[in-house]
Amino acid sequence: MSRFLSLIIAVMLLAGTALADPLGLGRVAEPDEIAAWDIDVRPDGTGLPAGSGSVAMGEEVFVEKCAACHGDFAEGVGRYPALAGGMDTLQDERPTRTVGSFWPYLSTTYDFINRAMTVGYGEPASDDEIYAIIAYILYSNDLVDEDFVLSRENFTSIRLPNEGGFYMDDRIQTEHPLFIRPACMKNCKDEVQIIARVETAFIPADMNRDGSGKTRLAIGETLFGQCRACHQIGDGAQNGVGPVLNGIFGKPAGSNDRFDYSDAFAMMADEELVWDFDALNAFLKDPQGFIPGTTMNFTGIEEDFDRNALIAYLQAQGP
C-alpha cells in the first residue's frame, strides 16, 4: 500500500472516530424528570405503582369514567372497542377481540389506561382507581370473582387466556419461499372472471355513459323503493307506518319523539343504540334478528353490496 493511500485511510479512520465519540450534547436527565415521563409498564410488572382496587370499586369507576365509550358492561359503544366478551371467537367469521378473548398480557391494560385513557379522551384516575377498573374488566370477562381485589402484589399472577396465542412474525419462513420465485409473464391462466365489484360512485357529469351505469347512490335510491311503503324521506317527509328517515345515519335509535315505537325499538333506544354503519348494516341484513320483536315488516337485504348502497343513500339524505 502506498504511503499516500495509508494516509487517506488514517484520516478517514480519524473522521470516523470523531463521529462515534459523544459530542457532549444534551444534559443529564434528572430523577424527577425521568419519574414524570417514564410511565411504562411491562408484562413482568416493571413500572407498576403501589396500589390496589376491588371489582366493586371498579364497577363504580368504570360506569362513571369509561362506560360512555366502552358501555356499562365493557361491551363497547359504536366503534369504540368492547373490552369484555368474545371468548373463543378468534376463529369465527367475525372475531371479537377483547382484553379477555385476545390481549396477551394484563400489564398492557395498566399501561394503556394510565397512558392514554386518563388524559385526553378519558377522565383522570388515581392508581387505585386504575387497579379497580382493571379488576372490573377482568370480572366482566369472567376471569375473576366479584370479591376480587387487584394490586401491584398479585398483578403478575393474573395470566390472560390468549397469552400463548401470539407468535413472532414468521413471514420470512412461511410466506416468502412461496413468493420469491420467477413470475409468470405469458398465458398464466386460461380465463378470468369478475367475482366481486364495487360499482363506482365516481362518474363525472360529462362522461359518456351507457345505460347500465348507475352510481351506488342511485342503486340505493332504487332499493329505498321497498321502504317507501312505510317510510318517507326527503323534503316534507312525514311519519307514516314507519318513522321519517331523514338524517337517520348517525342518529340514536328510537329518537323520533313524534313516532310511537314498538317496545323492542324503545328498548334499543334505552340501550343507546346509534344508527352508525355497523348498526344499520346488521339491522338491514336481518331486522328481526338484530331487533327481535320489531314491528318492521321486512325480511332484510341479503346482498352486501345492496345494503351498502342503501346505507349510502340513507347517509346522503339531509336531516
Binding site: E191, V192, Q193, I194, I195, A196, R197, V198, E199, T200, F202, I203, M207, N208, R209, D210, G213
Partner: peptide, 14 residues
Amino acid sequence: HLQSDGRVENVEIS
C-alpha cells in the same frame, strides 16, 4: 375494471 365508457371499478377476479 376499466369499462368501455371510461369508468373504473374496484373488482376482484377469479
